[in-house]
């Protein structure tokens, strides 16, 4: 067993988990909304990519490019017309509604695509690898990881460097006062969920090309996403990347010791962080 290799694989796997989690983290950071259908939305996007690949013969990357604006529109509409109505002092309504949405998406996908597990074929890229001195890394895992970094850099640039990003943070602080500045919180929330769905599409691209998925795959992606967000600290996107990496590392190291321990050791790492740093590793200063 090559430990260096194990660690590299763990870090790269963490990129996938960070992609699962980034949209969840963004939405939570801006509107304190926990979207229990997040994992199912990833799977929905994966099926969308699959349809575009099989029906139109598109390359999966091109298919994701086509799917992204569609998913943005779905996210925008979902937030504006449905989820905005659930936001308020009570945290229960958004949980119940997104839980219901999760079931609706799963059953809708079962109806349309059956329970068979699927995969998006990425051709020769799937098995391509690069030699990095003592270790080799798959091209797809590397692309996943760098996509995660790019997504997080991009979202951070937007949040901290643009006028819309200031509006995101102002709305998150105080929606009523944000309204006095001319910001429409309902639209800001819709935009945030739309962006989260673009990230979800990127996550779906790598989920679909790297592993099998079926209509019921969503909830377990949601768990990984949750764990990454909480390990990293609520509201911090870099923390979410770190959280994803810690989760990925724990899983691959666990699996290297005993293949049956993969999933368990991820959850144990999560519990350990929760025990010693309940606010996560990089909590946001203001909450």
């Amino acid at each position: 067993m090559n430990w260096l290799d194990t660690i590299l694989q763990g870090v790269l796997l963490g990129g996938l988990y960070a992609l699962f989690a980034a949209g969840l983290s963004l939405v939570f950071g801006i509107m304190r909304l926990v979207n229990l259908a997040h994992g199912d939305l990833i799977v929905l996007a994966a099926f969308l990519i699959l349809v575009l690949v099989t029906a139109l013969g598109l390359n999966p990357f091109l298919a994701a490019l086509v799917a992204a604006p569609l998913m943005f529109a779905i996210g925008w509409g979902l937030q504006y017309f449905l989820l905005n109505r659930t936001l308020g002092k009570d945290i229960l309504p958004p949980l119940l509604v997104t839980f219901g949405l999760s079931i609706v998406i799963q059953n809708g996908l079962l109806e349309g695509f059956s329970a068979d597990s699927r995969r998006v074929v990425a051709g020769s890229l799937e098995s391509a690898s690069v030699n990095l001195g003592p270790v080799t890394a798959g091209v797809m895992p590397l692309m996943t990881f760098f996509s995660a970094v790019a997504v997080i850099v991009g979202l951070n640039q937007m949040i901290y460097r643009t006028s819309v990003g200031r509006a995101f943070r102002a709305t998150s602080d105080d929606p009523v006062t944000a309204g006095l500045m001319g910001i429409r919180p309902q639209r800001i929330f819709a935009l945030a969920t739309g962006l989260a769905m673009v990230v979800v599409t990127i996550a779906a691209l790598y989920l679909g090309t790297r592993a099998n998925f079926d209509p019921t795959s969503g909830p377990s992606r949601l768990i990984y996403a949750f764990e990454a967000v909480i390990i990293g600290g609520l509201g911090s996107l870099w923390g979410t990347l770190a959280g994803g990496i810690i989760l990925g590392l724990a899983q691959t190291v666990g699996a290297a010791i005993n293949p049956e321990w993969q999933i368990l050791s991820g959850h144990l790492a999560f519990l350990a962080v929760l025990l010693f740093k309940p606010r996560g590793l990089f909590p946001r200063a203001v909450d």
Binding site: R166, R169, A170, D174, T177, R284
Partner: peptide, 14 residues
């Protein structure tokens, strides 16, 4: 009612 997660200049810009 300043926005606590924004700097002074960001509060002005918003």
């Amino acid at each position: 009612k300043l926005f606590p997660s924004l700097t002074v200049e960001e509060n002005l810009l918003v």
